[in-house]
Protein backbone atom coordinates (compact mmCIF):
# COMPACT_ATOMS: atom_id res chain seq x y z
CA UNK A 1 0.00 0.00 0.00
CA UNK A 2 2.66 2.38 1.09
CA UNK A 3 4.88 1.53 -1.85
CA UNK A 4 2.04 2.09 -4.28
CA UNK A 5 1.41 5.46 -2.68
CA UNK A 6 5.09 6.34 -2.92
CA UNK A 7 5.29 5.18 -6.51
CA UNK A 8 2.25 7.28 -7.45
CA UNK A 9 3.68 10.22 -5.63
CA UNK A 10 6.98 10.04 -7.47
CA UNK A 11 5.23 9.48 -10.77
CA UNK A 12 3.17 12.61 -10.22
CA UNK A 13 6.25 14.60 -9.27
CA UNK A 14 8.09 13.29 -12.32
CA UNK A 15 5.26 14.24 -14.66
CA UNK A 16 5.02 17.70 -13.23
CA UNK A 17 8.78 18.17 -13.29
CA UNK A 18 9.02 17.29 -16.94
CA UNK A 19 6.05 19.51 -17.68
CA UNK A 20 7.87 22.43 -16.07
CA UNK A 21 11.42 21.60 -17.03
CA UNK A 22 11.14 20.43 -20.63
CA UNK A 23 10.55 23.86 -22.18
CA UNK A 24 13.67 25.06 -20.43
CA UNK A 25 15.69 22.10 -21.63
CA UNK A 26 14.42 22.70 -25.12
CA UNK A 27 15.43 26.34 -24.90
CA UNK A 28 18.79 25.23 -23.60
CA UNK A 29 19.53 22.92 -26.53
CA UNK A 30 18.16 25.40 -29.00
CA UNK A 31 20.44 28.12 -27.70
CA UNK A 32 23.43 26.09 -28.89
CA UNK A 33 22.10 25.50 -32.38
CA UNK A 34 22.66 27.35 -35.58
CA UNK A 35 20.23 27.93 -38.41
CA UNK A 36 20.89 24.44 -39.73
CA UNK A 37 20.18 22.79 -36.40
CA UNK A 38 16.85 24.54 -36.03
CA UNK A 39 15.36 24.08 -39.44
CA UNK A 40 16.04 20.40 -39.97
CA UNK A 41 13.29 18.95 -37.74
CA UNK A 42 13.38 18.44 -33.97
CA UNK A 43 16.78 17.48 -32.57
CA UNK A 44 17.75 17.39 -28.93
CA UNK A 45 21.18 16.01 -28.24
CA UNK A 46 24.23 18.12 -29.07
CA UNK A 47 27.15 16.54 -30.99
CA UNK A 48 25.05 13.48 -31.70
CA UNK A 49 22.15 15.13 -33.49
CA UNK A 50 23.51 18.58 -34.30
CA UNK A 51 26.70 20.53 -34.10
CA UNK A 52 26.63 22.90 -31.10
CA UNK A 53 27.68 26.50 -31.59
CA UNK A 54 27.97 29.54 -29.35
CA UNK A 55 26.38 31.83 -31.92
CA UNK A 56 23.20 32.30 -29.86
CA UNK A 57 25.07 33.30 -26.74
CA UNK A 58 26.86 36.12 -28.53
CA UNK A 59 23.98 38.41 -27.59
CA UNK A 60 25.31 38.33 -24.08
CA UNK A 61 28.54 40.06 -24.88
CA UNK A 62 28.89 43.61 -25.96
CA UNK A 63 30.04 43.55 -29.48
CA UNK A 64 31.39 47.10 -29.38
CA UNK A 65 28.73 49.09 -31.18
CA UNK A 66 28.33 46.46 -33.89
CA UNK A 67 25.59 43.84 -33.77
CA UNK A 68 22.86 43.46 -31.22
CA UNK A 69 23.41 42.65 -27.59
CA UNK A 70 21.17 42.52 -24.54
CA UNK A 71 23.70 43.66 -21.95
CA UNK A 72 22.55 47.28 -21.89
CA UNK A 73 18.84 46.43 -21.69
CA UNK A 74 19.63 43.85 -19.04
CA UNK A 75 21.20 46.49 -16.84
CA UNK A 76 18.41 48.98 -17.52
CA UNK A 77 15.82 46.36 -16.68
CA UNK A 78 17.60 45.53 -13.46
CA UNK A 79 17.77 49.19 -12.45
CA UNK A 80 14.11 49.84 -13.26
CA UNK A 81 12.81 46.66 -11.67
CA UNK A 82 14.86 46.91 -8.52
CA UNK A 83 14.22 50.61 -7.93
CA UNK A 84 10.52 50.33 -8.63
CA UNK A 85 10.19 47.21 -6.48
CA UNK A 86 12.11 48.76 -3.63
CA UNK A 87 10.10 51.96 -3.64
CA UNK A 88 6.82 50.09 -4.05
CA UNK A 89 7.69 47.84 -1.16
CA UNK A 90 8.65 50.75 1.07
CA UNK A 91 5.53 52.75 0.27
CA UNK A 92 3.29 49.70 0.10
CA UNK A 93 4.40 48.37 3.45
CA UNK A 94 3.71 51.69 5.14
CA UNK A 95 0.34 52.03 3.43
CA UNK A 96 -0.56 48.46 4.30
CA UNK A 97 0.33 48.90 7.95
CA UNK A 98 -1.89 51.94 8.12
CA UNK A 99 -4.72 50.16 6.37
CA UNK A 100 -4.35 47.18 8.65
CA UNK A 101 -4.14 49.00 11.95
CA UNK A 102 -6.05 52.25 11.74
CA UNK A 103 -9.54 53.06 10.61
CA UNK A 104 -9.88 55.49 7.77
CA UNK A 105 -12.97 57.08 6.39
CA UNK A 106 -13.22 58.65 2.98
CA UNK A 107 -16.87 59.52 2.65
CA UNK A 108 -18.58 56.17 2.69
CA UNK A 109 -15.33 54.35 1.90
CA UNK A 110 -13.78 52.32 4.66
CA UNK A 111 -10.45 50.52 4.96
CA UNK A 112 -11.50 47.46 3.02
CA UNK A 113 -12.77 49.63 0.17
CA UNK A 114 -9.52 51.53 0.06
CA UNK A 115 -7.59 48.27 -0.06
CA UNK A 116 -9.80 47.05 -2.86
CA UNK A 117 -9.31 50.32 -4.69
CA UNK A 118 -5.58 49.65 -4.66
CA UNK A 119 -5.84 46.20 -6.15
CA UNK A 120 -8.60 47.21 -8.55
CA UNK A 121 -5.96 49.23 -10.38
CA UNK A 122 -4.62 45.96 -11.66
CA UNK A 123 -7.97 44.81 -12.99
CA UNK A 124 -7.82 47.30 -15.83
CA UNK A 125 -6.26 46.00 -19.02
CA UNK A 126 -2.89 47.73 -19.47
CA UNK A 127 -3.88 49.20 -22.80
CA UNK A 128 -6.31 51.50 -21.00
CA UNK A 129 -3.45 52.97 -19.05
CA UNK A 130 -1.00 53.26 -21.91
CA UNK A 131 -2.24 56.56 -23.30
CA UNK A 132 -2.60 58.34 -19.95
CA UNK A 133 0.86 57.15 -18.93
CA UNK A 134 2.26 58.27 -22.24
CA UNK A 135 0.77 61.74 -21.89
CA UNK A 136 1.84 62.09 -18.29
CA UNK A 137 5.40 61.08 -19.01
CA UNK A 138 5.46 63.37 -21.99
CA UNK A 139 4.28 66.21 -19.78
CA UNK A 140 7.06 65.46 -17.32
CA UNK A 141 9.59 65.02 -20.07
CA UNK A 142 10.29 61.52 -18.87
CA UNK A 143 9.31 59.54 -21.95
CA UNK A 144 11.97 57.07 -23.01
CA UNK A 145 13.91 57.49 -19.77
CA UNK A 146 14.68 55.16 -16.88
CA UNK A 147 13.16 57.46 -14.19
CA UNK A 148 9.97 57.64 -16.23
CA UNK A 149 9.74 53.87 -16.39
CA UNK A 150 10.44 53.59 -12.67
CA UNK A 151 7.52 55.93 -11.96
CA UNK A 152 5.18 53.90 -14.13
CA UNK A 153 6.33 50.64 -12.63
CA UNK A 154 5.76 51.96 -9.12
CA UNK A 155 2.18 52.69 -10.15
CA UNK A 156 1.90 49.09 -11.32
CA UNK A 157 3.68 47.40 -8.42
CA UNK A 158 2.46 49.45 -5.47
CA UNK A 159 -1.03 47.87 -5.52
CA UNK A 160 0.49 44.40 -5.44
CA UNK A 161 2.86 45.24 -2.60
CA UNK A 162 0.11 46.93 -0.62
CA UNK A 163 -2.32 44.11 -1.13
CA UNK A 164 0.07 41.39 -0.08
CA UNK A 165 1.23 43.35 2.94
CA UNK A 166 -2.26 44.28 4.15
CA UNK A 167 -3.08 40.62 4.21
CA UNK A 168 0.14 39.83 5.99
CA UNK A 169 -0.30 42.53 8.63
CA UNK A 170 -3.90 41.50 9.21
CA UNK A 171 -2.54 38.14 10.24
CA UNK A 172 -0.25 39.62 12.86
CA UNK A 173 -2.42 40.07 15.94
CA UNK A 174 -2.94 43.62 17.06
CA UNK A 175 -1.87 42.58 20.51
CA UNK A 176 1.71 42.53 19.29
CA UNK A 177 1.58 46.24 18.49
CA UNK A 178 -0.32 46.94 21.67
CA UNK A 179 2.24 45.06 23.70
CA UNK A 180 5.06 47.01 22.08
CA UNK A 181 3.33 50.24 22.98
CA UNK A 182 2.84 49.12 26.54
CA UNK A 183 6.51 48.22 26.59
CA UNK A 184 7.27 51.82 25.71
CA UNK A 185 7.33 52.17 21.93
CA UNK A 186 5.39 54.89 20.21
CA UNK A 187 3.27 53.65 17.29
CA UNK A 188 6.08 54.17 14.79
CA UNK A 189 8.55 52.47 17.12
CA UNK A 190 6.20 49.52 17.46
CA UNK A 191 6.08 49.24 13.68
CA UNK A 192 9.80 49.56 13.12
CA UNK A 193 11.11 47.55 16.04
CA UNK A 194 8.56 44.79 16.34
CA UNK A 195 6.24 44.49 13.38
CA UNK A 196 8.73 45.11 10.60
CA UNK A 197 11.26 42.45 11.65
CA UNK A 198 8.42 39.98 11.95
CA UNK A 199 7.18 40.92 8.49
CA UNK A 200 10.25 39.91 6.52
CA UNK A 201 8.54 36.81 5.10
CA UNK A 202 5.65 38.95 3.88
CA UNK A 203 8.02 41.53 2.47
CA UNK A 204 9.93 38.77 0.72
CA UNK A 205 6.77 37.48 -0.94
CA UNK A 206 5.61 40.95 -1.92
CA UNK A 207 9.11 41.71 -3.20
CA UNK A 208 9.12 38.53 -5.26
CA UNK A 209 5.82 39.48 -6.86
CA UNK A 210 7.06 43.00 -7.58
CA UNK A 211 10.25 41.76 -9.17
CA UNK A 212 8.47 39.16 -11.27
CA UNK A 213 5.86 41.59 -12.56
CA UNK A 214 8.36 44.38 -13.05
CA UNK A 215 10.97 42.24 -14.78
CA UNK A 216 8.52 40.54 -17.09
CA UNK A 217 6.50 43.55 -18.16
CA UNK A 218 6.67 44.04 -21.87
CA UNK A 219 3.75 46.28 -22.63
CA UNK A 220 4.77 49.50 -20.87
CA UNK A 221 8.44 48.96 -21.58
CA UNK A 222 7.42 48.85 -25.21
CA UNK A 223 4.91 51.70 -25.38
CA UNK A 224 6.81 54.22 -23.28
CA UNK A 225 10.26 53.92 -24.83
CA UNK A 226 11.61 54.52 -28.33
CA UNK A 227 15.34 54.42 -28.91
CA UNK A 228 17.34 55.77 -25.99
CA UNK A 229 16.09 53.39 -23.36
CA UNK A 230 15.36 49.75 -23.90
CA UNK A 231 14.33 47.15 -21.35
CA UNK A 232 15.13 43.48 -21.60
CA UNK A 233 11.77 42.08 -22.80
CA UNK A 234 11.71 44.65 -25.58
CA UNK A 235 15.33 44.00 -26.48
CA UNK A 236 14.70 40.27 -26.72
CA UNK A 237 11.81 40.82 -29.07
CA UNK A 238 13.94 43.26 -31.05
CA UNK A 239 16.35 40.43 -31.78
CA UNK A 240 13.82 39.28 -34.32
CA UNK A 241 14.68 40.09 -37.87
CA UNK A 242 13.72 38.55 -41.22
CA UNK A 243 15.11 35.25 -39.99
CA UNK A 244 13.96 34.48 -36.47
CA UNK A 245 17.15 33.82 -34.49
CA UNK A 246 15.82 30.99 -32.36
CA UNK A 247 19.26 30.38 -30.91
CA UNK A 248 19.69 33.96 -29.60
CA UNK A 249 16.08 34.10 -28.43
CA UNK A 250 16.58 30.91 -26.44
CA UNK A 251 19.79 32.12 -24.89
CA UNK A 252 18.19 35.47 -23.94
CA UNK A 253 15.15 33.76 -22.54
CA UNK A 254 17.32 31.64 -20.32
CA UNK A 255 19.35 34.55 -18.98
CA UNK A 256 16.17 36.56 -18.46
CA UNK A 257 14.61 33.86 -16.38
CA UNK A 258 17.75 33.10 -14.42
CA UNK A 259 17.55 35.94 -11.85
CA UNK A 260 13.90 35.17 -11.12
CA UNK A 261 14.69 31.53 -10.56
CA UNK A 262 17.48 32.41 -8.17
CA UNK A 263 15.33 34.87 -6.24
CA UNK A 264 12.40 32.47 -6.09
CA UNK A 265 14.73 29.79 -4.82
CA UNK A 266 15.84 31.95 -1.90
CA UNK A 267 12.39 33.28 -1.08
CA UNK A 268 11.03 29.76 -1.09
CA UNK A 269 13.77 28.69 1.34
CA UNK A 270 12.87 31.60 3.53
CA UNK A 271 9.16 30.81 3.55
CA UNK A 272 9.44 27.11 4.15
CA UNK A 273 11.57 27.63 7.24
CA UNK A 274 8.31 28.24 9.06
CA UNK A 275 8.84 31.90 9.70
CA UNK A 276 5.76 32.84 7.74
CA UNK A 277 3.36 31.36 10.24
CA UNK A 278 2.87 32.48 13.78
CA UNK A 279 4.27 35.86 14.58
CA UNK A 280 3.22 35.06 18.10
CA UNK A 281 1.99 32.17 20.17
Amino acid sequence: MKTIYLALKYLAILLWTSFVALPFLWALTTSFKTANGVTGGATYIPWLQYKPSLEGWKVLVRTGGQGIDIVGPYISSAIVTLSASFLSLALGTLAAYGLSRFSYRLGFLKNSDITFFFISQRIMPPIVLAIPFFLMLQFLGLLDTIPGLILVYIALLLPIATWVMVDFFNNIPRQVDEMAMIDGCNPIGAFVRVILPNSLPGIAVAGLFCIIFGWNDFFFAFTLTFTKTQLLPVAVVALNSSVTPWWSLSASALVSVAPLVIIAFFVERFLSSGKMAGAIR
Partner: peptide, 15 residues
Protein backbone atom coordinates in the same frame (compact mmCIF):
# COMPACT_ATOMS: atom_id res chain seq x y z
CA UNK B 1 -0.20 57.73 24.83
CA UNK B 2 0.18 54.20 26.14
CA UNK B 3 3.96 54.29 25.97
CA UNK B 4 4.08 57.20 28.38
CA UNK B 5 1.84 55.63 31.00
CA UNK B 6 3.22 53.68 33.89
CA UNK B 7 1.06 50.70 33.20
CA UNK B 8 2.02 47.15 32.40
CA UNK B 9 -0.49 44.83 30.84
CA UNK B 10 -0.63 41.12 30.25
CA UNK B 11 -3.07 39.75 27.70
CA UNK B 12 -5.01 36.54 27.74
CA UNK B 13 -2.67 34.89 25.28
CA UNK B 14 1.05 35.38 25.59
CA UNK B 15 2.59 37.98 23.34
Amino acid sequence: PTSKRNIAQVFQFPV
